[in-house]
Design a protein around this nucleic acid. Structure first.
Length: 590
RNA sequence: GGUUCCGUAGCUCAGUUGGAUAGAGCAACAGCCUUCUAAGCUGUAGGUCGAGCGUUCGAACCGCUCCGGAAUCACCA
């Protein structure tokens, strides 16, 4: 039982004892910091039961609680709000619990298996800023769900087949001149991306030429030789043409090497990777089953559709007229395979909100095919990352590349640390490690502190801040705490805090610490790392204020000093574990 | 046009199921290092919570209408 529930149950008991109301609505919230007290009971809903005014009702309940509940020490009434203060001893006991709980913040096993899909890259171009948000979110949500006690499977789905892959393959075949990552020194995903752009360039030129020759533009888009060749390549691929297959494997291999480096740099990982090329056939067979069952229908041209108009949606294509599969086809297959393999309780797709419609349809189709587990699919629909001028557009060269972004952040962190003289005593290896930690910390925190559902803005011209509500601010607070603890250990001061009672400022810190498990739970329920980010920022801010106002090592009372060290240590520990849920490492010094 | 989402300080964002005088950071201005890390701390200034109506003892939050923005409604993924 958490503290809020404790206060709530005692308040309910008071209401029953005083007014005889059994199931009155007892509303407990944290007391706002401008008022005295720890928890506040809002008495307005209780006025009917009490038959008195707000002040009298609040005073009566407050009096009863102080008289009958040892932990509740004092109360005050402001309008209809009853502010309750818990005793120092109560908070000291809570702190002792935290200090002895090695798993503080992590919940007991729930018995549920949750699969989280994230990343899901296409193998025709390198990762960009949008993917960065996806990867950081997915990884963090998975860690948070683990902390909530679930068994979590992080899975990736590589979109390694399809017309878009054939485009870069074709362009490389036509214009590549045998270039490889080794021959060019380019990262494989970037090299392949270059040919995807190359395809588009030539395709556009062909369309232009056809239109100039008098063809309708839509027709030109369909008839341009580049697109016809790409479509032919996809058919040959689905027929497992050895030449096309070999080319496909070769170029995808380059991309995987590149992705691996980017994933490593971001610090994300997966328990299992699915490939669309290995699930689309299963998807096709599901379409056949659905056809046989009358859930889907075939048009005269041979294409297969599902009619969702009765559900307020449209008709949706499941197989093209030439028999090749589309996105939905393989997603059906992938979902099936996953359920067969893991029997998950929940499946969470971390995918951008531009695909809301797709997932609505996916769930509906899986339901129509008779799968009860379709109800346990959640689309964690996150907002786009926008630039000041709007969406990233590859045509206008405004795409923020993930590798460049990460390297830039680390370089900025290095410069700044140097400028501040923070690296003076560090070896080059230590300096690199710190710069990496701080640069990545700034980037990750910047992205994760925003509510996932919301569109967020990133201005590449202004570097991400290192002061204020930022990752480095929190990392700094941790480094500061570790520094004090190091000095304490070096001088061998007593760590016996027996007899020390917390000051009001210390109670505030303890209160914030006790909130951590609840925040983790809420973050898990809402799939929102932002809740953890905002929590740990508040904690760091609170600690910095405390640190400023109270000296620790210079405190002369040994027990008080020891208590402050304990409080600092636990704060540092919670900062580290909250940041770990965000995938952000915290340094010992910076 | 249909569906979904969003609109809070100059900028970027918080605001937990409806609760007290709507909060941070950045930017601006004024202070604080002979003292445990100043990537810090304190203060000043900055708001018609897009607009209106309604429900309620009480609305940034719930409902309706409008305004503005985004996504989507592809034989792309």
């Amino acid at each position: 039982m958490n503290i809020e529930q404790f206060v709530e149950s005692k308040s309910a008991a008071a209401v029953e004892a005083l007014f005889g109301a059994r199931d009155a609505v007892v509303q407990i919230q944290k007391t706002r910091k401008e008022f005295a007290g720890d928890y506040t009971l809002v008495v307005f809903p209780l006025l009917k039961a009490s038959g008195r005014g707000p002040e009298q009702t609040a005073a009566a309940i407050g009096g009863w609680l102080v008289a009958n509940v040892a932990e509740i020490e004092a109360f005050n009434v402001v309008k209809g709000f009853l502010n309750l203060s818990l005793s120092e001893a109560f908070w000291a006991a809570r702190f002792a619990e935290i200090a002895t709980d090695a798993n503080f913040g992590h919940h007991a096993p729930s018995g549920r298996t949750v699969m989280v899909e994230y990343s899901s890259p296409n193998t025709n171009k390198p990762l960009h800023l949008g993917h960065v948000r996806n990867n950081l979110l997915g990884w963090s949500v998975a860690e948070i769900l683990k902390a909530c006690g679930h068994k979590v499977l992080k899975v990736n789905l590589v979109n390694d087949r399809g017309i878009h892959i054939c485009k870069s393959m074709l362009a490389w075949q036509l214009f590549g001149g045998g270039e490889t990552p080794a021959s060019t020194g380019m990262k494989g995903d970037h090299l392949v991306g270059k040919y995807y752009v190359e395809f588009d360039k030539h395709y556009k030129a062909e369309i232009k030429e056809l239109v100039a020759g008098g063809m309708d533009e839509e027709e030109a888009k369909r008839q341009a030789p580049m697109i016809l060749q790409a479509q032919e390549m996809l058919r040959r691929w689905e027929q497992k043409d050895p030449e096309i297959y070999a080319l496909w494997e070769r170029m995808n291999g380059w991309v995987y090497d590149g992705f691996e480096k980017t994933y490593a740099a971001m610090g994300v990982d997966f328990d299992r990777t699915y490939y669309e090329s290995q699930t689309y056939l299963l998807g096709k067979s599901l379409v056949d089953k659905g056809l046989a069952a009358g859930v889907f229908f075939r048009r005269d041209d041979g294409s297969v559709w599902v009619d969702l108009e009765a559900d307020g949606l449209d008709q949706k294509l499941l197989l093209r007229s030439d028999g090749t599969s589309v996105y939905m086809t393989q997603d059906l297959g992938t979902a099936y395979q996953r359920y067969e393999e893991y029997r998950f309780d929940d499946l969470i797709y971390v995918v951008g909100n531009e695909q809301n419609y797709h997932f609505q349809v996916l769930k509906l189709i899986l339901s129509k095919l008779g799968n009860a587990w379709a109800d346990h699919i959640t689309h964690l629909s996150y907002g786009m990352v926008e630039l000041p001028e709007g969406k990233m557009k590859s045509r206008e060269g405004t795409v923020v590349d993930a590798d460049d972004l990460i390297a830039g952040m680390v370089a900025t962190a290095h410069d700044m640390s140097q400028e501040l003289g923070k690296l003076d005593d560090a070896t080059p290896e230590q300096a690199d490690a710190i710069s990496r930690m701080v640069g990545l910390g700034a980037l990750k925190y910047f992205i994760l502190k925003v509510d996932p559902r919301k569109t967020m803005l990133f201005d590449p011209r202004e570097s991400i801040d290192f002061n204020g509500n930022t990752g480095p601010f929190i990392q700094y607070t941790h480094a500061r705490i570790r520094s004090v603890l190091r000095k304490a250990a070096e001088t061998g001061v007593s760590r016996d805090a027996t007899g020390a009672t917390p000051l009001p400022a210390e109670v505030e810190l303890i209160k914030q610490l006790t909130d951590f498990p609840g925040v983790v739970a809420a973050a898990g329920e809402n799939f929102s790392p932002a809740l953890v980010a905002n929590y740990v920022y508040e904690l760091a801010k609170l600690y910095n204020g405390y640190y400023h106002d109270h000296s620790i090592l210079r405190e002369e009372n040994a027990a008080v000093r020891a208590f402050r060290l304990d409080l600092s240590e636990q704060t540092g520990r919670v900062i580290a574990s909250a940041m770990a849920l965000l995938g952000i490492a915290v340094p010992e010094r910076m």
